[in-house]
Write a protein that binds this DNA or RNA. Structure first.
Length: 527
RNA sequence: CCCUGCGUAGCUCAGUUGGUUAGAGCGCCUGAUUGUGGUUCAGGAAGUCACUAGUUCGAAUCUAGUCGCGGGGACCA
């Protein structure tokens, strides 16, 4: 038996990326930042301000319960803080043992799994900095509107394409408002942001619903406990994926999936299942918002919560309609529920209506690219008070993928102007030329590779980097105070028209006076 | 975690019912090119056939296990 030590000795270090994480190259970065900048600009125009929060938070502040031992719990990356810190009580004071010593502990830290829970922490902490704790019960919590983007982390057990363990979200939220007008605004912001990013009208649709309607309806049907309600919502959330029939089976007796897997059902009684299925079915065809509202009223749900939900939808519609946000952009879909437990009112989701052909020739859809909703219980376990909040999030990586798959990504950006190296003595001259070009606003690079002697290598490097121009200055040019400028871009375009190399080179090269180089390049790059 | 398929050069893949020395295209490297990317031409490097064990005279090919990857499902704050 090979002992542990022998195996241990064979261990080596290999450059490798952590599974589910990825390196982002310049072209993907270009696309990603275009999304962030365009949407951020829209968020800002509505008055949301840019905040950042740390990637690490105390596990309890994120609202997740402490993991057992040091293992990753429920999809969150958590570990013990190497630093020992005082344990606190709910009122913020230090916990002490019988000897009046402060209890110290290595507390659990988590990597943020979304941007909403750090928002709750920031909001709560902001209030505690400003107000005394006992004031919080008496005051109306202040309004706070922020946008934020950055990476979030989830320990996905099964990785599928487009699903990563590190991915970027782009959120905007209102904390401290119960006004449904803010929810209507969320829909408008989402729509405006997506169009600013470049999605054409009708290529996406913002879907809106109100959790209150379904939960009220379920209460009327006799669903009493929250857990059952939560389960029903979870199953209905699969609607898009598996369809009405299978949803009905999962609500009832369960089903066997095509893959052979057994999916156990909730075991609800048949009558209840039928009522729920009918409810969803009644709204499965997309129509005018006003028609949906009429249908909802026809159901004649007596439950107060449901009534309230419908009233809120009426208000949302009236605002959207007044601003000409019609069904091309925002629709009502009472079967939309969103899986997350914490939503309490209006929920939104943006569905991309575009499809693409995958490598196997199968037509596929990206589906949901944004999500959000109203969550009134968010800071409750941090402050002990309810603060109503509403907001939404764009999945940056999902959207970037959508743009690439549907060929809407911007063309690859040109690289810098490239100054080729000929002669060691001319290095100061190259630097001077490069500096002058940069001053004139031209991105410029001097070659420092280790195979400087080989012009071919230099050209290949410039070509690989998508450089538009190469500036060639040898001893002859330097003496004459000129530079040979080679147009790589043009060279590529007309390459197939020439078989003779000399002729082709004459077309793409030009001698320019050093003093006129910057102007010449700027002129050329304009077109 | 459950079901299922796959693993042959850097990449995409051929490889006959198990049979001697494992192939192609692309890419890469060198040269024609005397200071210059495309095209063309000539040449070159590169694989323990994922790993381990078994069946067999003989295994890339068959069997089992392990690892890795893909597809479907369950879970998902």
């Amino acid at each position: 038996m090979a002992n542990k030590k022998q195996v241990e000795n064979k261990r080596g270090t290999v450059a490798r990326k952590v599974k589910g994480f990825r390196d982002i190259d310049p072209s993907l970065n270009q696309l990603k930042w275009k999304i962030i900048n365009s949407a951020g600009q829209v968020y800002k125009s509505y008055g949301f301000e840019h905040w950042d929060t740390p990637i690490l938070e105390y596990a309890d502040c994120l609202g997740k319960y402490l993991p057992d031992d040091d293992t990753v719990d429920k999809g969150v990356y958590s570990f013990k803080n190497p630093e020992v810190e005082p344990v606190l009580r709910a009122d913020g004071s230090e916990l002490r043992d019988e000897d009046a010593h402060v209890v110290m502990e290595n507390q659990h830290l988590s990597m943020r799994y979304d941007l909403t829970s750090p928002l709750a922490r920031r909001y709560a902490e902001g209030l505690l900095e400003k107000y005394q704790r006992h004031m919080l019960n008496q005051m109306k919590p202040p309004l706070f509107r922020r946008y934020q983007f950055g990476p979030v982390y989830r320990y996905e057990i099964k990785l599928s394409p487009g699903r990563f363990r590190e991915f970027w979200q782009l959120d905007f939220d209102n904390v401290g408002t119960n006004d449904v007008a803010a929810d209507a605004e969320v829909c408008m912001v989402l729509s405006d942001a997506l169009e600013a990013i470049g999605l054409p009208r009708k290529s996406y649709v913002v879907k809106v619903n109100n959790r209150k309607i379904l939960t009220g309806y379920l209460k009327e049907l006799g669903v009493k406990d929250d857990l059952t309600e939560q389960n029903i919502i979870r199953v209905i959330d699969k609607m898009d994926k598996i369809g009405l029939d299978k949803v009905a089976l999962e609500l009832g007796i369960g089903r066997t999936d095509d893959s052979g897997a057994e999916v156990k059902g909730l075991g609800l009684d048949e009558k209840l299942v039928r009522s729920v299925a009918d409810f969803i079915k009644g709204f499965s065809i997309q129509r005018k918002r006003k028609e949906v509202l009429t249908d909802l009223r026809k159901l004649d749900i007596q439950n107060e919560i449901a009534q309230e939900g419908i009233q809120e939808m009426v208000k949302i519609d009236s605002i959207l309609s007044a601003l000409d946000f019609d069904e091309e952009r925002v629709i009502f879909d009472p079967s939309l529920v969103r899986g997350l437990a914490y939503y309490t009112g209006p929920v939104y989701e943006v569905e991309s209506l575009q499809s693409y052909i995958d490598s196997k020739g199968v037509e596929r859809r990206i589906g949901s690219i944004c999500g959000g909703g109203r969550y009134d219980g968010l800071v409750e376990n941090l402050l002990g008070i309810k603060v109503p909040a509403t907001g939404a999030s764009i999945g940056v990586d999902r959207l970037a993928e959508l743009l690439m798959l549907t060929n809407q990504a911007p063309k690859r950006k040109d690289g810098p102007v490239f100054i080729a190296y000929f002669d060691e003595e001319l290095m100061p001259h190259y630097q001077k030329v490069a500096r002058d070009l940069r001053t004139a606003g031209i991105e410029t690079e001097v070659y420092y590779g280790m195979d400087k002697k080989k012009m071919k290598k230099q050209m290949a490097y410039a070509d690989d980097k998508n450089c538009p121009f190469v500036v060639l200055i040898g001893a002859n040019e330097a003496e004459a105070g000129i530079a040979t400028v080679k147009n790589l871009k043009l060279g590529k375009e007309i390459a197939d028209k020439f078989t003779d190399k000399k002729e082709w080179m004459e077309q793409v090269q030009k001698e320019v006076l050093i003093g006129e180089l910057a102007d010449y390049l700027n002129e050329q790059m304009k077109g």
